[in-house]
């Protein structure tokens, strides 16, 4: 009887190993393990075995059945894999055709640069404030020490709405507005649109500026240099050199113009820096005590600095844009580059 089992086992193994398809494996499964299969039959006829041998015989029979089962599963699995692989091959697509997606849009380069600058200054604990674009002559000029007959008004071509209302020519107009409603200490940046009655290859009538100012006891000109140095290094990289030179703004004294080493040619000289190696990038200075008087601060108690910058100028340098007029034409081929 045991020999009989051994023979079945050998035969089954031989047959399974010869199987060449999933179908054959399934047939063999039925043949050996199915309801009418050889093993089922054997198990059913277990009762015919004498009592004393039955236990041993049953164990061997079971072992052999398990062996066949495992072998069949192994072959079944490998044939299944083979067949799946074949099917997958027929489902081949052209992976080089473009993907389907809704491409994300692009925030305007001016906004991106402005956001970057704002985040630098907020990290230095400046607060963001805003003022109106259509502004009183008072806040745009008078309060900044530029009375109606001041020749410094020639430095900016102004759009007028009425005698007393202008399109603000700079974001400095926010200074006295904020000072009037807030007591020092102050650390403020004020971004926004400004307007100049001027248009040619290098000028557009509307552009963006960011004004910054700090007022407290003991604010020094060296602090202005330090803060602007941190800012420039963060936005143009730590190797950028800064150059402070005297200038004039009616609302700061001393006043400074800040140049940075040309980011295009690294100071060697090129078209962008007109071969000087330097680029004018910021106007700044210590807030003129006359402004504190205007705002109702005690001029001998507080000192402060202020600075202003053109955003498009910085964006042009950051991205290498060579024509300022491209900014507000809104050609999508321009907008989608940033």
């Amino acid at each position: 009887m045991l020999n009989d089992i051994q023979t079945i086992k050998n035969l089954a193994r031989e047959e399974i190993e010869k199987a060449h398809s999933l179908k054959t494996v399934h047939e063999l499964k039925i043949k050996y393990l199915g309801k009418k299969g050889i093993f089922t039959h054997k198990i059913k006829s277990l009762g015919l075995i004498p009592q004393e041998d039955r236990r041993e015989y049953g164990r061997i029979l079971n072992e052999t059945k398990n062996y066949i089962e495992e072998l069949l599963a192994k072959y079944e699995n490998s044939f299944k894999t083979l067949e799946l692989n074949k099917t997958l091959q027929t489902q081949r697509i052209d992976v080089t055709a473009p993907g389907y997606c809704i491409p994300a849009g692009h925030v305007h380069p001016t906004t991106q640069v402005l956001d970057e600058i704002i985040s630098i200054f907020t990290s230095l604990s400046f607060n963001v404030e805003e003022g109106p674009e259509v502004e009183l002559d008072f806040y745009n000029f008078e309060a900044l020490n530029m009375h109606k007959d001041h020749p410094a008004r020639d430095m900016q071509d102004t759009f007028y709405i009425t005698e007393d209302i202008v399109l603000r020519t700079h974001t400095s107009s926010v200074q006295v507005r904020i000072m009037e409603k807030t007591a020092p200490p102050l650390r403020v940046i004020a971004p926004g649109k400004v307007y100049r009655c001027d248009a040619d290859v290098t000028h557009i009538p509307m552009f963006h500026q960011l004004e910054g100012f700090m007022v407290d006891k003991h604010v020094k000109m060296s602090d202005l240099k330090g803060v602007l140095e941190v800012f420039i290094h963060m936005i143009f990289g730590p190797d950028t050199k800064l150059r402070f030179r005297p200038s004039f703004f009616p609302f700061t004294e001393p006043s400074a113009e800040i140049d940075i080493s040309c980011v295009i040619c690294k100071g060697v000289g090129c078209n962008v820096c007109k071969n000087t190696g330097w680029l004018e990038i910021l106007g700044a200075g210590m807030i003129n005590p006359r402004i504190f008087e205007m705002a109702g601060y005690a001029p001998d108690q507080y000192t402060g600095f202020a600075f202003g910058m053109g955003i498009e100028r910085i964006a042009m340098l950051k991205y290498g844009i060579d024509d300022i007029r491209l900014f507000y034409e809104n050609d999508k081929r321009f907008l989608e580059q940033f």
């Binding site: 407290d216 060296s222 602090d223 240099k225 030179r245 005297p246």
Partner: peptide
């Protein structure tokens, strides 16, 4: 302040150090 500006101008802006302000949080 106008006199101080003149002094700063001829002293040389370049010679003014760069410091960071100490602030109250």
């Amino acid at each position: 302040i106008d006199v101080i500006e003149e002094i700063a101008r001829l002293y040389g802006y370049e010679k003014i150090p760069a410091t960071l302000p100490s602030i109250r949080m």
